[in-house]
Every structure is written in structure tokens, then in C-alpha cells.
């Protein structure tokens, strides 16, 4: 058992269920509600009888009341592909507490819950390309693989989410895509969202930030060095600079929220200091 995923953490996971707005269209039978009407026990809708329909499904009570033939439609439950994209650029390996811990724990928790729900889980590590991919794991027994995969993630290089996403080999099948990133990749988010939507994904965006990114605690003249590129800026940490940073940060968040709202993306913002169950609860409640 690693430090990253201790027993206490795993115990908590079993309590949580992920909910998705997307109802999957096809795939193997699973535990998730599908838009296809099928043979499950869960009633979905009525429609008028048409020639060729299975008359075992005719609702005779309705016929007695309206003297018309109605067919009872039932929800078909199917398994859903859950794609978890983790931003593994160097910027994610920063902060106190470190964002990499929070992002991997969140990814692990989501993977576990999905596996427990008989979903098919794929993990993708993205930096400027899809660094590592762990495709299509099924069943709780695959969780060991998930942990193994996550523990060996390397955080390096700059971020190019769109390119990385494109090179990930994501299949164009209905599914859930969860992106865990700090989104410090200007202008790419819309492309990423569009790409995922094109790939018929129900998109969940888990925006992870370190507390120091939300509220920088600097109070002197500093050379700010970019952890990804090594580029730097000399600044004197005046209250006005901090004020302006907060303003920029707020507009950064609002622009993300706006885009997410526009494209129907479920956006959640987490601080790396949040406990993972709190993050999961937010995801489940959404």
C-alpha cells in the first residue's frame, strides 16, 4: 500500500457513486442508464404500437382505458467508458500541498468508483502529448492496475492539452471524460472541450489549483521562474500587483466557467488542500 493511496482512502471510495448525465447509447451491458430502450426492469416511456413490435410489451391496462395499443418502453442499462485525463505537465507538480497528489488521488477515486459501477475505465496522462495511456480496464480487480499506473506517473514538460488529447487515441464512442488539470494552457480549453464533445463525451472538468495560485503569498522583490519553461519575470510584490493578480485570476476562472457553461461541461474547482472525499462528493453531486 503506497502513501498516496492508503487503506483509509480506499475504504472511503467504496461509499461513493459517480453520477453522469450522459446516458450511454451502446456498449456492453453495464450498470449505467442508457438512452436506448431495452429489456431492463426500469420503465422509461410509452409509445403507440407499430407493426412488428413485440406485442408482449403492449400495455393492456392502457388499451382498456384508451382503446389504443401502447407499447411500454424500458431503460436498457449499459456499461459506460470512463476516460480520465490527468494533466501531467510540470506545472501540476507544484504547490503546497502538491497538486500532483491531489490530482492522482482524485483520478484513483474516480477510477475506483467507475470500476465498481462496472464501467470501463481508461487513464490518460497528458502533458504536451499523451504520455501514458492505460486503456479499458474493467471490474474492481483492475483497480490495482490503476494504482500502479498512477503511482508511476511522471510530471514533466510543458502543457499542450489539445495536442495531447488528440494524440491520446480516444474512441468516438459515448462516454464520460474527466479532465484533471490546472488549465494553465492558454486558449486550449475550448479546443479541448470541442474535441471531447465531438467525441460524444460527457465532460467533467476538475480544475485543481494550489492555494498559492489562488492567493499568492509573496511580499518582496522576486524573480518568478516558470517551473515548466524556466522563463522568468522580475517583480516587486506590491499590494497593487497582488491585487491585479487576483483580478486576472478571477477573470481566468470566470472565462473557464463561461466556456464550460456554454458547452455543457460540468466544471468543478478544487484546491489541492481539499480532502479527496470532498472532491468526490462534489463530482457525485454534480
Amino acid at each position: 500500500m503506497s502513501e498516496l493511496f492508503d487503506g483509509e482512502f480506499l475504504k472511503k471510495l467504496q461509499q461513493l457513486v459517480i453520477a453522469s448525465k450522459i446516458i450511454l447509447a451502446d456498449g456492453s451491458g453495464g450498470n449505467r442508464k442508457s438512452r436506448s430502450k431495452g429489456s431492463s426492469v426500469e420503465f422509461s416511456d410509452y409509445r403507440e404500437y407499430a407493426a412488428g413490435d413485440d406485442f408482449r410489451r403492449v400495455d393492456w391496462n392502457a388499451y382498456g382505458r384508451f382503446e389504443k395499443l401502447f407499447i411500454k418502453l424500458f431503460m436498457e442499462e449499459r456499461e459506460s467508458p470512463v476516460n480520465i485525463f490527468i494533466d501531467t505537465s510540470k506545472s501540476m507538480d507544484w504547490g503546497e500541498p502538491n497538486k500532483n497528489t491531489a490530482s492522482r488521488r482524485l483520478a484513483a477515486a474516480l477510477a475506483y468508483i467507475s470500476l465498481a459501477n462496472y464501467d470501463r475505465v481508461s487513464l490518460f496522462c497528458l502533458s504536451n502529448s499523451a504520455e501514458k495511456v492505460k486503456p479499458a480496464m474493467r471490474g474492481k480487480y483492475s483497480f490495482g492496475e490503476v494504482l500502479d499506473f498512477l503511482e508511476n506517473v511522471e510530471y514533466k514538460g510543458p502543457t499542450d492539452l489539445y495536442e495531447a488529447m488528440r494524440s491520446s487515441g480516444l474512441k468516438a464512442a459515448r462516454g464520460i471524460s474527466i479532465l484533471i488539470s490546472d488549465l494553465f494552457s492558454p486558449g486550449e480549453l475550448v479546443d479541448v472541450i470541442k474535441y471531447l464533445a465531438y467525441r460524444k463525451q460527457d465532460i467533467h472538468l476538475c480544475h485543481i489549483l494550489a492555494p498559492q495560485e489562488i492567493d499568492p503569498e509573496i511580499n518582496e522583490s522576486l524573480r518568478l521562474v516558470d517551473i515548466e519553461t524556466g522563463g522568468f519575470r522580475d517583480v516587486t510584490a506590491t499590494p497593487l500587483l497582488i491585487k491585479t493578480y487576483r483580478k486576472v485570476f478571477n477573470s481566468f476562472i470566470s472565462s473557464i466557467e463561461e466556456n464550460c457553461h456554454k458547452y455543457g461541461v460540468n466544471y468543478m474547482r478544487f484546491e489541492s488542500s481539499m480532502p479527496v472525499e470532498q472532491m468526490i462528493k462534489a463530482v457525485v453531486a454534480s
Partner: peptide, 21 residues
Amino acid sequence: QRHRDYTVSSLYLWDEALKDL
């Protein structure tokens, strides 16, 4: 004016802030 090095996750927001200033 000698600046102390301070690593940040990204200069993206800082650049925006400095531009804004």
C-alpha cells in the same frame, strides 16, 4: 533590486497581471 528566485507553476497569470498593470 536583487530578486530572489521563486518558482511558480506557471507565469501565465503573472504575465497577464503584469500586462494589466
